[in-house]
Design a protein around this nucleic acid. Sequence first.
DNA 1: CATTTAATTAATAGGTCTATTAAATATGGA
DNA 2: TCCATATTTAATAGACCTATTAATTAAATG
Lengths: 207, 207
Amino acid sequence: MEVKNNPTMEIVILETAERLFLEKGFGMTSTTEIAKEIGCNQALIHYYFRTKENLFNIIFEKKFRQFFQNIFVVENLDQMTFQDKLKHIIETHFDMVRENPRIPLLIVNEFSRNPEMVATLKEKLQGVVAMLFENLKTDLQVEIEAGRVRPITLIDLIFNIISINISLFLLLPVAGEIMSLDEKQKEIVINRRRDEHVKLILNGIRS
Amino acid sequence: MEVKNNPTMEIVILETAERLFLEKGFGMTSTTEIAKEIGCNQALIHYYFRTKENLFNIIFEKKFRQFFQNIFVVENLDQMTFQDKLKHIIETHFDMVRENPRIPLLIVNEFSRNPEMVATLKEKLQGVVAMLFENLKTDLQVEIEAGRVRPITLIDLIFNIISINISLFLLLPVAGEIMSLDEKQKEIVINRRRDEHVKLILNGIRS
DNA sequence: CATTTAATTAATAGGTCTATTAAATATGGA
DNA sequence: TCCATATTTAATAGACCTATTAATTAAATG
């Protein structure tokens, strides 16, 4: 049994498809275009991945996990104050979204195309989400009871962080165009917003 | 000159196309499907609107304006405090997004498909945006100088409001699925978030 | 009523898309 | 070297899509 298992072309297809799916979405990306981009025969896409749907699902699942699995970094935070923990969480989440600015749009769009895909993936994440919750829940409770933080559910707090970080990178292309920002100016805005998000969330939960 | 000008079919096409474009986006909606949905011949779409692109552009421009033209209600706010003005702005914007929850996604997606469309529309909005700015800018300045609000640019404040409101309705379909929310529970979440957004923004700019 | 114009349909050209199949080429092991 | 297997390509079926054209039906007008 000689296993050739040359992964290069398979990987090239995955990488190219990932880029195009992220740029243009499922519906506006064709296997023909993926092949043309690579410079290979279009049938090769189907040789390795059988269907476009299957290729997309592999990529989508990977991106979905990538986005939710380590959505928050909650390690080495033990000796910090709650404020500093939260600041650290907001900033690392911000940086993660900054590195993957198109994943949220991919997920939102795919959900309206095929809700079952997300339903399928959610089960695999529930453990992670639950763990994340437990980790911060007691901290928040202590702060609220001490009167340092206004009453707020952990889920609302987390939703605030995710919302504000994600929407920056969702809206920036459009907002940048409306405000006539070039790439350099966008970079400045992003850095200013990073600080602003920390201030907004931290101030926003004060009692 | 006998002008028939029977607008019913034209309107039916516009309404059906609008619904489908909002649901599935430009790329995954075909003129064939629009016609099938209506129950008319597919050529009729092209008779009235010539091209799919043209039909989409008409709808997109309308939705774009609808979303940005009256993005904030800033009338009859004269005798209010800054806090109450802001509360009112956040809530009316929230309600507007709630009524048009799919427009942001349409705009974001269309921008990555065809950035020039947004570039074309921005000029027509700049007057509106500028007026909006002037109206709140001095108010904010007064609050900051009085020490009641931390230093923040008006643009960041507005971006905070738009971001938090839009992202709720962008993310709710996915988040609802992950958290297994039915429609009734979603409604409860939406109402709770409406209050939370006001608290977040108002607290978030305290000095 | 006859005629002109508008609205609608049937038919189709021409293109692209996904997926399959068979043939050609490359690769590794005996 | 020769063979078996893996990879790649060429060709194509079959579906669907956009847009156009010509023909048909409906509506309005004199």
